[in-house]
Amino acid sequence: MTVIAQTPKPPYYAVIFTSIRTPVDDGYGDMANRMIELASQEPGFLGVESAREEVGITVSYWQDLDSIQRWKANAEHREAQRLGHEKWYASFKTRISKVERDYGRD
């Protein structure tokens, strides 16, 4: 089931990870699912949204910059990053933004 992350009233932060995959799968889906499971256990994690097509886009939401830094330093996450650099991503970009306003329909 596809859901939109339920975030609190701003401000909060968004980490936007955009990628183009290599043809290598070799456990990618399992690792991606594990990273979402692991991130959701981190203090300050607020939610995640992801779309994987020609260009993959994953947006995770965080309470503050310290929470993002702790997630970046997580040992299992660092191993996933290493594998991504070595075999899963032809190119990627990470952007960190402060969300000042949000609106929509649930």
Rank of each mutant, 00 (worst) to 15 (best):
M1C: 01
M1K: 02
V3M: 10
A5G: 08
Q6E: 12
P8K: 03
K9L: 09
P10H: 03
P10V: 06
P10D: 07
Y13S: 01
Y13C: 03
A14E: 08
F17Y: 11
F17S: 07
I20M: 15
I20N: 13
R21F: 12
T22W: 10
P23M: 08
P23G: 12
V24K: 09
V24G: 07
Y28D: 02
G29N: 09
D30I: 10
D30M: 09
M31S: 08
M31E: 09
A32L: 05
N33F: 04
M35C: 12
I36G: 12
E37W: 05
A39V: 13
A39H: 08
A39D: 12
S40W: 03
E42F: 06
E42P: 02
E42Q: 15
E42M: 14
G44P: 12
G44V: 08
G44S: 10
G47A: 05
G47T: 04
V48M: 08
E49K: 11
E49F: 06
S50C: 05
S50F: 01
A51L: 13
R52E: 15
R52W: 14
R52I: 13
R52L: 15
E54Y: 12
E54R: 14
V55Y: 11
V55R: 15
T58Y: 05
V59S: 00
S60Y: 02
Q63P: 01
Q63C: 06
D64R: 03
D64E: 12
L65A: 09
D66S: 08
I68D: 00
I68V: 01
I68T: 00
I68W: 00
Q69K: 14
R70K: 04
K72G: 04
A73W: 03
A73I: 01
N74S: 00
E76H: 00
E76N: 02
H77Q: 04
R78D: 09
E79I: 11
A80Y: 00
Q81E: 10
Q81K: 09
R82K: 13
L83F: 06
H85P: 00
E86S: 13
E86L: 08
W88K: 02
Y89L: 09
F92P: 08
K93A: 15
K93H: 08
T94R: 15
R95D: 11
R95G: 07
I96V: 12
I96Q: 03
S97A: 15
K98E: 13
R101P: 04
R101F: 11
G104S: 00
R105D: 14
R105P: 03
D106V: 02
D106K: 05
D106T: 03
